[in-house]
Design a binder for these strands. Structure first.
Length: 966
RNA sequence: GCGAGCGUGGCGGAAUGGCAGACGCGCCGGGUUUAGGUCCCGGUGCCCCUCGGGGUGUGGGGGUUCGACUCCCCCCGCUCGCACCA
């Protein structure tokens, strides 16, 4: 021990003490400890069995914990300081739990397929394989420099052949599965075929319109029937075509403005044959199982809204003079007596079948008159109904979603010339086409009830259609459509019933009369799963001459992505009829292939689409569990060990950004449920607890033209931000390339070290809140680490200045209070308040060591251990300097001494009418009467009380006394 | 428009219905230093003050309560999500 007075300044003025903790020292010791952890395999986490099970016996009796981050895209720009916020948070939590006796799984992989990686490769003119590998190397370096305690053996990249082999394997399971509605789960297609062959299941399919028995069907029809059941299927449907990206996109990847989530390019609806995954079969389970998982309510709401379950009825309206019905979906079957017209979506297939050659008269109310001119549309008065519809469709097709919104939702439409019968009233009502009805929802047709729906009201007003109220509005109701509850009117057998009862009665009536049934409908659409891009997983699918898809056997996996020199997508600036053309189509030698699929070598043509970005991220958390398993996706024992847990199981803590609420998080749940149904995983949900970290924001600056300028080059001149001599305006926004406001971690490492960066990011505020980056504030936490260093090490001599002299009672009590508070804060991911407590404890040690010349070991060692999850490098270094020769990664986290936590006196507040007038120290076990008497006797309290009568006294033990005056 | 969340010092932020502003930045003062910086100590919501203290204060208004940043209602503002979903 160094017994010299530590505060003696031997350093000459103008020089920094030689052994101060500064950036240079931090960089040196951080690199050294990162090497140590790597060499000692400190964070290798053993599995209970299999190739990664070495050392499991040492942790077999510990509870296990799976902590997961949403893995990053290895983008070319590298990480900025906003990216690692969540990674640091999970690392602190994982290290804390490891020290608290858990066997913790924590690792990091790379989501390296997909558009961003390919776009970056295009920009740099290099092959995506090259840029992706470079970017992964760079990102590994940046993450390693943060000192994250990851098991390096498990960090898979989705672009590894050994990884995407299993992505393809899962696709084959999906392709070879169907959803058994009766059982409520997916089953292998083989079982479906068995049932069809045995006749225990009828072949219900568009491919078999007459319902002929299986035995009478030819092979092709049988295959079409089976294909129509598969969870992965090809279908021609209007899809989101983005010419600028050269590919189609899933609904989830298109913004409300009708533009691509990536790059903000225009997106057009085009009918194309594409791969779809039947996620709609899982709509109810995806909805219901949200109840069992511990996720932020906002994310659950977003998923619920996206799934969009509505209950109501489908109702058939017979078309006059045709053997046809228009089937509509409504959530308000009770309003059927007020349905005064029907509307079909412009693309509705029935439109062409019901349009007459000439305009009929108009039936309005009970009268027959000439139809109003507006019914013929605004495309000429001298057109037939067919022409009016054609022109209207052309008008709709060239309107973008943006234009539709800009026009204030003014209702447009055209009368089809056809009438249908309202089955409730028996009256004929006109059938319109209008684009306020969407083909993609419900049946693409509605019964319009203007009195109870504002959109229908607007349309009816525009086109002079009758409005019949069927719900009595309150007498003071002044609006148009009334959507609230009230007694039914003008509705015969429903009159007097309130909405819920009337709905139920109507559904009963519909089912009795055969005009309809109660139904449920969803906004969720099937998942468009193919992309016309190069950088993705190839489908394990080939085609023979008949054009029907054939699944490759597992033995032919992986289907490797061929190396293409010309991998650019075919892109275009407009929606002109450039068909999507997958780049893989250019790999002739790869596409045309001779295979023996059991009936001898034959020629096949490979599927040339690739899977979307999201495929690899749907299951990476499973591969982390068993990354080297060549025989299985994940060994069942290993899966059960890591995934079994509270509330149905799943990853114990999953941290990531909110932007994946309805993309990755919905898709991954869907895949996981298929794997669960088919028996490959043990839990119905993948992620038990989800936590959304906030974003790091930073000032961004715009010049006079509104262009963002490089924030790092903006200088402050007399409080005004200036860029190259020009004034600029400041705002705060999410850190990133587009706002030109990135702060790079490498710069922070250089100026302060990684521990300072970690500590700062955890100290800025709650992990789930967004907060602005402030380079000025970093010095606060850096100074703390310097003070901590000084608590242990003499800056002048580099000697340890920790002694075995007992701590004073006050310091010891503070230690144990700190331990208790830090433990609960760490467990609750409230790192900012835990850090504040550690600051206070170290500030106390600063005072103690100034007085006594040394720091008490009984306090210093627990302090270092408590800091270890937050700032592991400096903690390891100081721990070693204190004479320990093993890493502290597995040291038990300090436990509070309960005896030190119990206090015998408490400072209480004395209030008069709720206002604090005095403070008072009383024994904690004092009776209420004693406390009250002491409070009355306190001079300032007595003065405040005066002679006024006390009406009531409230005594809260250990907290306060409140006198309520009369 | 609908849904969710959030409004606390100059700034980031603390507060199981019980002493508002912990901790950090910044700022003010003092010590160390030739000086600046570093480091150490003290102060710092706002307004008064006879320096003892007093008043006031968590977006605004109301309510519940002995007591409200916290719970309830209305309004204002900001953020996010959805948006003609029948």
């Amino acid at each position: 021990m160094n017994d010299d007075a530590p505060t003696t300044a031997t350093t000459p003025a103008g020089a920094t003490p030689p052994y101060r903790y500064d950036a240079r020292r931090a960089n040196e010791l951080e690199a050294r400890w990162q090497d140590f952890w790597e060499q000692h395999r400190t964070f290798w986490t053993p599995n209970p069995s299999g190739l990664l099970s070495e050392g499991f016996e040492r942790v077999a009796d510990r509870p296990r914990l799976y902590v997961l981050d949403m893995f990053p895209y290895p983008s070319g720009a590298g990480l900025h300081v906003g990216h690692p916020l969540g990674y640091i948070g999970t690392d602190v939590y994982a290290r804390y739990q490891r020290m608290s006796g858990h066997n913790v799984l924590h690792t990091m992989g790379y989501d390296a397929f997909g558009l961003p990686a390919e776009q970056y490769a295009l920009q740099t003119g290099q092959h995506p394989r090259v840029t992706t590998d470079q970017n992964i190397v760079n990102m590994r370096r940046q993450l390693r420099a943060l000192g994250l305690g990851h098991d390096p053996r498990r960090g898979v990249a989705t672009t590894d052949v050994h990884y995407y082999r299993w992505t393809q394997w899962i696709f084959l399971r999906i392709f070879n599965a169907w959803y058994d509605d009766a059982a409520g789960r997916a089953r292998p297609v083989d079982e479906l075929v068995t049932e069809l062959e045995a006749g225990t299941r009828q072949a219900v399919s568009d491919a078999n319109p007459d319902g002929r028995p299986w035995s009478e069907l030819d092979d092709r029809t049988r295959r079409l029937i089976v294909d129509s059941y598969r969870l992965a299927y090809r279908e021609e449907a209007p899809v989101n075509w983005c010419p600028a990206l050269g590919t189609v996109l899933a609904n989830e990847e298109v913004t409300a403005e009708g533009r691509s989530e990536r790059g903000n390019h225009p997106v057009f609806k085009r009918p194309l044959e594409q791969w779809m995954l039947r996620i709609t079969k899982y709509a109810d389970r995806l909805l219901a199982d949200l109840a069992d998982i511990d996720w932020p309510e906002s994310i659950k709401v977003m998923q619920r809204n996206w799934i969009g379950r509505s209950t109501g009825a489908s109702i058939r309206f017979p078309v006059e003079a045709h053997p046809l019905d228009v089937e509509v979906f409504t959530t308000r079957p009770d309003t059927i007596f007020g349905a005064t017209y029907l509307v079909l979506a412009p693309e509705h297939p029935l439109v062409d079948r019901i349009v007459p050659a000439d305009w009929p008269g108009a039936v309005i109310g009970d009268e027959l008159t000439d139809i109003p001119a507006s019914w013929r549309g605004v495309f000429g008065t001298d057109v037939t109904p067919g022409e009016a519809i054609t022109r209207y469709r052309a008008f709709v097709a060239q309107r973008t979603d943006l234009e539709r919104q800009a026009e204030g939702r003014e209702k447009t439409g055209v009368f089809t010339g056809a009438y249908a019968e309202n089955p409730a009233t028996g009256k004929l009502i006109p059938v319109f086409v209008a684009d306020y009805v969407l083909m993609g929802y419900g049946t693409g047709a509605i019964m319009a009830v203007p009195a109870e729906d504002q959109r229908d009201w607007d349309f009816a007003t525009e086109f002079d259609l009758p409005i019949v109220r069927t719900v009595e509005p309150p007498s003071d109701f002044a609006g148009d459509a009334f959507t609230g509850d009230g007694p039914a009117i003008n509705s015969e057998f429903l009159d007097g019933l309130h909405v819920d009862d009337a709905k139920q009665r109507t559904v009963e009536w519909l089912e009795e009369t055969g005009f309809g049934t109660g139904t449920v409908t969803y906004k969720l659409r099937d998942w468009l799963f193919s992309r016309q891009r190069y950088w993705g997983e190839p489908f394990p699918i080939v085609y023979a001459e008949d054009g029907l898809p054939i699944a490759l056997p597992d033995s032919m996996l992986p289907v490797e992505l061929p190396t293409l020199e010309e991998f650019e997508p075919v892109v275009s600036d407009d929606a002109a009829d450039t068909p999507p053309e997958p780049p893989l189509g250019r790999a002739q030698h790869w596409v045309e292939v001779t295979l023996d699929l059991g009936d001898g070598p034959r020629q096949y043509r490979r599927e040339t689409n690739t899977m979307p970005q999201w495929a690899g991220s749907c299951w990476y958390y499973l591969r982390y569990l068993d990354p080297t398993n060549e025989d299985r996706l994940v060994d069942p024992d290993v899966d059960r060990y890591w995934m079994t847990g509270p509330g149905g199981g799943g990853v114990d803590l999953y941290v990531g950004g909110v932007e994946h609420a309805v993309l990755h998080l919905l898709y991954a749940r869907f895949w996981h449920k298929i794997l669960f149904d088919l028996g490959f995983v043990s839990t119905p949900e993948p992620f038990h607890r989800l936590f959304n970290q906030g974003y790091i924001q930073a000032p961004a600056f715009q010049d006079a033209r509104g262009m963002y300028v490089e924030a790092s080059e903006v200088v402050d001149r007399a409080g005004e931000p200036m860029f190259h001599g020009e004034p600029v305006t400041r705002e705060f926004g999410k850190m990133g390339k587009s706002l030109k406001n990135m702060v790079m971690p490498d710069d922070v490492y250089r100026d302060y070290g990684a521990d300072t960066l970690r500590l700062y990011e955890m100290f800025m505020g709650p992990l789930d809140a967004s907060r602005p980056w402030s380079t000025n504030d970093i010095v606060g936490v850096h100074r703390f680490l310097q003070r901590l260093w000084r608590t242990v090490i003499d800056e002048e001599t580099d000697a340890v200045r920790v002694g075995d002299r007992a701590a004073d009672p006050e310091t010891r009590r503070l230690l144990h209070q700190t331990i208790a508070a830090v433990r609960s804060d760490m467990a609750a991911l409230k790192f900012n308040t835990a850090i504040a407590r550690l600051f206070e404890l170290n500030n106390q040690l600063t005072r103690v060591s100034a007085d006594t010349g040394e720091s008490p070991r009984e306090v210093v060692e627990p302090l270092i251990l408590m800091l270890a999850p937050l700032t592991p490098h400096i903690a390891e270094e100081l721990w070693a300097r204190l004479g320990h020769d093993a890493s502290l990664a597995f040291e038990p986290f300090p436990e509070p001494d309960e005896a030190e936590l119990t206090v015998d006196t408490a400072e209480i507040a004395v209030q008069v009418n709720g206002k604090t007038r005095a403070r008072l120290s009383v024994p904690v076990d004092a009776s209420e009467a004693t406390v009250e008497a002491a409070a009355r006797a306190e001079p300032r309290a007595a003065a405040a009380l005066g002679d006024a009568p006390v009406r009531k006294v409230i005594v809260v033990p250990r907290r306060l006394v409140n006198f309520v005056l009369g």
